[in-house]
Amino acid sequence: MGYSLWPFLAIAGGIAVILGSRRLGESLQKVVLPLSAAVIGVSLWQLACEFKSYELRAPDGSVRLIEVFPTPWQTLVELARMLQDGTLLRYTIASLYRVAVGFGLAAAIGIPVGLVAGWSTRAYRTINPLVQGLRPISPLAWIPVAILWFGVEDASAIFLIFLSSFFPIITGAMTAVHSIPTVFLRSARNFRLGRAELFRYVVFPAALPQIITSLRMALGIAWLVIVAAEMIAVQSGLGYVITDARNGNNYPRVLAAMVCIGLIGIVLDLGVRQLQKLDEVRWGFSKA
């Protein structure tokens, strides 16, 4: 059945560019290197498709080529179709909305609780075992529970996203307060700061860089969970597209939605990284 030539050429070209990129300027490298990696990835994808397809010989001698896996081109065509009929935009907004609410609630509850639990030993002893015990449970396992509690509406999906991001945030906040250098607290005490002031002017700012790191991680997880969260009978969202297209045998659409989730993930991560550049938190990082 044979393989196409272009993926091999593209892979060779990509590798050549990466190897020869030492002499390129830094700003050019930042564009060329990830692009080369993407070209190699897409080429390997194409080869995997061709590897999986097979010829079916009927008893009458006729031969049919059976394609098993959607190719990059089929996926791109499907992506264009979704862009054109508006589903892509609509479902992206639906998913982002659920992540925003779930993640927002997780941050709104997780940060204060985590700060308190990190500060007070008794609160830590009370909360930490529970948090660490619930943290490793996959959102997939929570689906039946979510349906029982929240039905098959948005609330269930939001609940799952909340769960998945709540535990990393609260753990991050607890650890952040825990690991504040004692010298900060001692000097604060020398200035005779009250409890509230200590929290406001020392503890919170000192913990902030680490909290932001945990927010960044948690947002990544929240977005990761969107497919599982939207497996519950909601009727919109990129995760829903995957389940729906899979049920409907439209595998190019499954891949197209996966590509979208990946691309939006990159954008979200870039966005949170901007937070780390704020003056208030910048001091916490050796390398911005």
Binding site: I143, P144, I147, L148, W149, G151, V152, A233, D244, N247
Partner: peptide, 17 residues
Amino acid sequence: IEMPPPDMPSALASKAL
């Protein structure tokens, strides 16, 4: 609405269906 069959009884019990 499409739903995995094992989820259906609990969804009915919680009046989601």
